[in-house]
């Protein structure tokens, strides 16, 4: 059940060059949430900006949810200023998360930019499920890499200042070619272009692949139809309720 609630901030701190991390006391939402789902957060009480901001669930405990966010525009600038003990309007858990019941023993988590945000909650769940984990973290340059808490990390930077030089799919291909323990599955989140490339690699190696998409969202609950996404089988899905996580094969990429 989706819940619209007022929630207290446990902490809100800068954790890297680019990212902020906010922990929110959300017992009712946390109880039902799963990795890959998201929240929408009201960043202003005065209606400016007007719309809520969608944020992935980054970490999950039984009573709290953490988000990891990049400060971009007005909404995230306001979010950054929220202090411990203050309250925010939060809606969640929204959307469909990752399906971890498919058969695999090795998970290749692939995150570009703040796309790593939802992969941490997934990582923690897969650890509990005793899966082998490879985490590929990609960014433009070394100082933008954030990999706190991940295991089996392989870094990829476009300028080669850390890890494998080039696009993240190069590191992904390397991982796919390596000696993987048992059947593998890819879980990816990042910009559309990256996800499309990841889906290509997955198809090449015949690996199941789930991608978490991002679209502008007006409502987050399936009514405004601003987040439509074309499907391979024809028709449109709503990223906010039918996703944000989809099987990569379902998505019609060139639209």
């Amino acid at each position: 059940m989706k819940i619209n609630t007022t929630a207290r901030i446990i902490y809100n701190k800068q954790v890297s060059n680019e990212y902020w991390n906010m922990k929110i006391y959300l017992p009712q939402i946390a109880k039902q949430a799963s990795p890959g789902q998201f929240l929408t957060i009201q960043t202003s009480k005065t209606g400016s900006p007007l719309l809520r901001r969608p944020m992935s669930i980054h970490k999950l405990t039984s009573t709290s949810i953490e988000i990891l966010y990049k400060v971009r525009g007005r909404g995230t600038n306001l979010l950054m200023q929220v202090k411990k003990g203050e309250e925010l309007q939060v809606l969640g858990p929204l959307g469909h998360g990752f399906d971890t019941d498919i058969p695999f023993t090795t998970a290749i988590l692939t995150g570009g930019g703040y796309g790593i945000a939802p992969l941490k909650a997934l990582h923690d769940l897969l650890k509990k499920k005793k899966k082998n984990i490879i985490t590929i973290v990609g960014a433009r340059t070394a100082k933008l890499i954030y990999k706190e808490g991940f295991t089996g990390v392989r870094v990829s930077t476009e300028d080669g200042t850390a890890g494998i030089k080039g696009l993240l799919t190069k590191a992904l291909e390397k991982a796919c070619c390596s000696n993987l323990k048992g059947p593998a599955a890819i879980f990816a989140c990042g910009p559309d272009k990256m996800l499309q490339a990841v889906a290509g690699v997955a198809a090449k190696y015949g690996l199941p692949c789930q991608v978490s998409l991002e679209k502008m969202m007006g409502c987050g609950i399936g009514v405004c139809l601003s987040c439509a996404c074309r499907l391979e089988k024809g028709g449109l899905a709503r990223v906010c309720v039918d996703g944000p996580v989809f099987d990569a094969k379902e998505i019609k990429w060139n639209n």
């Binding site: 900006p49 719309l51 679209k215 502008m216 007006g218 639209n255």
Partner: peptide
């Protein structure tokens, strides 16, 4: 419907 993006704040 129309192509995306379909909304703007």
């Amino acid at each position: 419907g129309n192509p995306l993006p379909r909304i703007a704040e």
